[in-house]
């Protein structure tokens, strides 16, 4: 039975590593554009790419540790199962130096991760762009179960309260690409979370608060935008689109949307 467990633990580790190894090539990794249609999805915002880097760093550390501990575990189990009766057994329990090593090494690793990631966190929260410094493009109000969005008129800045010339959309957030922009996130009822997986941006919307969220989008196209906080029975319906377009197209879109919104339905009779 001892040999079975040794094989079992080593085999499970091998299978787990193997699955992780092939996952990217099957599109079972991150959302985002696959590198040349193959491999892991790449984030579409600058902060998203740095968050991915952090993930890969942690992944490497975890992978080395995981493989190492499982190799040792497999060896120990196998050795214990196959040991002969006359062989002398080594007792390491209570070894002071071993205790010191496996306390200090993981602490060192954790401390390293804790310090290393601070830069990315600081960059996202205040260092590079305070979300208040980035141009506010829209106010996004979550409610059960949709996103209602208010934009300032073209050439104007977003005001905290609705203005007569504001432009409105629902479940479609239009943003310009290539520069940092921010949204004011609010909720009308319960907690929701604004999540754009391909940008790696996720922020809870908390009742009573207006939370600025900044991001930049590198490629003009449509992205999925979902609610990432279970907000009620219709949570699954709370899907929307983030539509990123170039600066010129963004202006043109806003003009068109405003024209449609202020439509008075009057048609000049043909002469």
């Amino acid at each position: 039975m001892g040999r079975f467990w040794a094989v079992f633990f080593v085999a499970s580790a091998v299978i787990a590593v193997g699955l992780c190894w092939v996952a990217p090539s099957h599109g079972l990794w991150f959302p985002g554009t696959l590198k040349g249609g193959f491999g892991a999805g790449v984030a579409h915002s600058s902060i998203g790419k740095r968050i991915d880097d952090l993930f890969y760093l942690v992944l490497v550390i975890v992978a080395v540790t995981y493989i190492g501990t499982h190799a040792v575990l497999g060896y120990v189990l196998w050795r214990g199962a196959t040991i002969k009766a006359e062989e002398k057994v080594l007792f390491s329990h209570g070894s002071h130096s071993l205790e010191v090593i496996w306390t200090i090494v993981p602490s060192g690793i954790l401390l390293y991760i804790a310090l290393y990631q601070m830069d990315v966190w600081a960059a996202y929260r205040f260092k590079e762009f305070s979300p208040k410094k980035a141009e506010a493009v829209a106010e996004v109000t979550a409610r059960q179960f949709e996103w209602r969005i208010r934009y300032p008129a073209r050439g104007k800045t977003l005001m905290p309260t609705p203005q007569p010339d504001d432009v409105y959309t629902v479940n479609e957030l239009h943003v310009p690409t290539g520069r940092p922009v921010s949204i004011s996130l609010k909720t009308e009822d319960v907690q929701h979370a604004f999540f754009v997986p391909e940008l790696r941006i996720k922020q809870d919307a908390v009742p009573g608060l207006t939370i600025p969220v900044w991001f930049d989008v590198d490629e003009p196209r449509q992205y999925e935008m979902v609610c990432a906080e279970l907000c009620g029975w219709g949570h699954y319906k709370m899907k929307a689109r983030l539509i990123a377009v170039s600066d010129e197209d963004f202006g043109a879109w806003k003009d068109k949307a405003a024209l449609e919104q202020f439509d008075d339905g009057f048609k000049k009779p043909a002469e």
């Binding site: 409610r143 059960q144 949709e146 629902v170 479940n171 479609e172 319906k237 929307a240 689109r241």
Partner: peptide, 13 residues
Amino acid sequence: HGIPGTYMPSFRW
């Protein structure tokens, strides 16, 4: 577009 002020959400997607 849904109906704001009621529970009818937008099914734009």
